[in-house]
Simulated scan of single mutants.
Amino acid sequence: MGVSRCRLPRTDGLDIHVQGLDAVDGTPVLGIKPYLAEFGPQGPTDQPAWATEIMRDHY
Rank of each mutant, 00 (worst) to 15 (best):
H17M: 04
V18D: 04
V3R: 07
D57M: 02
T45S: 10
E53A: 08
G40N: 13
E38R: 14
V29F: 02
F39C: 04
P28C: 09
G43N: 11
L14K: 13
M1G: 14
L21H: 00
A37V: 12
D57V: 05
D12V: 06
G31N: 05
R5P: 00
C6N: 06
C6S: 07
G26L: 09
T11C: 03
T45D: 02
V3F: 06
A49D: 11
Q42L: 11
T27Q: 03
A49I: 08
R7S: 10
M1T: 15
G40Y: 09
I54E: 10
D25A: 15
I32S: 03
G31V: 05
L30C: 15
R56E: 15
T27V: 06
I54W: 09
D46K: 14
M55F: 07
Y35A: 06
P44N: 09
E38V: 15
G40Q: 11
P48D: 08
P34S: 13
A49C: 03
Q19C: 03
A37G: 09
Y59W: 14
A37E: 12
L21A: 15
M1H: 10
T45V: 15
V29T: 05
G20T: 02
R7P: 00
A23L: 13
M55A: 12
I16C: 00
L30G: 15
L36N: 12
R10G: 03
L8E: 05
R56D: 14
T27S: 14
D22H: 11
A37N: 08
A23I: 10
D25G: 12
V29S: 02
A51G: 03
R56S: 14
Q42Y: 07
K33P: 01
H58A: 13
A23R: 07
G2M: 13
V24F: 02
G40C: 11
L30H: 15
G13R: 01
P48M: 03
L30P: 10
L8A: 05
T11Y: 00
Q19P: 00
L8D: 05
G40M: 10
G40I: 09
M1D: 13
R56A: 15
V29Q: 01
A23C: 10
R56K: 15
E38S: 15
P34H: 11
D46E: 15
P44H: 09
A49K: 07
L8V: 06
Q47A: 06
L8P: 06
I32N: 03
G31D: 06
A49F: 08
E53I: 03
T27H: 01
P28D: 11
K33E: 08
Y35P: 01
A23H: 05
H17T: 07
D15Q: 00
T27W: 00
D22E: 08
R10C: 05
G20C: 01
Q42P: 08
I16L: 07
S4I: 07
L21Q: 01
L14T: 14
G40L: 08
G31F: 05
K33T: 06
P9G: 00
V18M: 09
P34G: 13
D25L: 14
D12E: 11
V18Q: 03
P28W: 03
K33R: 07
D12I: 06
Y35M: 08
H17Q: 04
V24G: 00
R7G: 08
L8G: 05
G40R: 09
Q19Y: 02
